[in-house]
Design a protein around this nucleic acid. Structure first.
Length: 276
DNA sequence: CGGCAAACCTGCGAGC
DNA sequence: TGCTCGCAGGTTTGCC
């Protein structure tokens, strides 16, 4: 379930395993995911020390000791699984396996193969073709109602679809778009440009709140119960509206309950009474 | 440029 | 039990 909060949790979970460690053995088990892997990826990573792990939007970056950065994306179904280095045979979808000099193993598994892994020079990271068009980080202080309002100007499409546009805001996915609009009381079908300053003034904190709450719950569950699987960031969330079609609205007593519609090919969940 | 559908993949649950 | 269908949390591309 990799939207911004999940990627953040994965990065935080990987940091204690990888930061400061050398990659003793890297196994690349196929030539590509969504994009081709860099040539000689395994060779270029083997022996490198991971200096720092950070996140940009839904991308993770591992800064290496030779000036290169591993750029990773989990796509729809990508996961990072932590375990020991042992003789367990890799699963069908275990595409890249990183063993550290401490005897720990990180397995990048991705059944649908929408994820990606690339190498980029640190000084070229911001200009990378996948990163250079990304909009502001929603959790940055610089992401304000004024900034979002300006971005929505001239957009006739629905606000919910606009929130998924990574050039407008980076990191919002299909779940948190619905959740934030519910929290802000805004109808997802409204034209993006029709939102008033007051409404955008509710939407921006709503976005920050749903993301932060998700990170907080993931962080705590990660600290408190290390999953036997070693899997990071894939705990049970409780969403107010997402995937709750027909269930009672948690914000009002309407008889209709949560509605599901499709916008730009993706499911949207909302309360028709509470969201205007 | 904006908006939309299709494409990339596999897995899973519902329904028959 | 087994099949088909629809659907899934992302992003890019190409067409209008």
């Amino acid at each position: 379930m990799p939207e911004l909060p999940e990627v953040e949790i994965v990065c935080r979970g990987l940091a204690p395993v990888l930061e400061g460690r050398r990659l003793a053995l890297v196994q690349v088990r196929r030539a590509n995911l969504r994009l081709p892997f860099p040539v000689d990826l395994a060779l270029r990573l083997t022996g490198r020390r991971v200096e720092a792990i950070t996140r940009r939007a839904k991308y993770m970056t591992w800064r290496l000791d030779d000036g290169w950065v591993v750029l990773g994306h989990l796509g729809m179904s990508g996961r990072m699984i932590i375990g020991p280095c042992d003789d367990t045979p890799p699963g069908r979808h275990d595409h890249v396996i990183f063993d550290t000099d401490e005897g720990r193993r990180v397995t990048f598994t991705d059944p649908r193969r929408f994820g990606l892994l690339d190498l980029v020079r640190a000084e070229d990271l911001a200009g990378h073709r996948l990163l250079c068009k990304l909009g502001p980080e929603p959790l940055d202080d610089a992401f304000t109602a004024k900034v979002l309002k300006a971005g929505l100007a001239g957009r006739s499409g629905p606000i919910k679809v606009a929130l998924l546009d990574q050039t407008l805001i980076a990191g919002i996915g299909n779940i948190y778009a619905s959740e934030a609009l519910f929290r802000a009381g805004i109808d997802p079908t409204r034209a993006a440009s029709s939102l008033t300053a007051k409404e955008v003034g509710r939407l921006v904190p709503a976005l920050k709140e749903v993301l932060l709450a998700s990170i907080a719950s993931g962080g705590s569950s990660l600290r408190d119960h290390r999953l036997p699987s070693g899997e990071l960031g894939y705990f049970q969330h409780s969403f107010a509206v997402y995937d709750r079609e027909g269930e009672p609205c948690p914000g009002c007593d309407c008889a209709q309950g949560i509605s599901r519609i499709v916008q730009a090919g993706r499911a949207t969940y909302f309360c028709k009474k509470r969201q205007k």
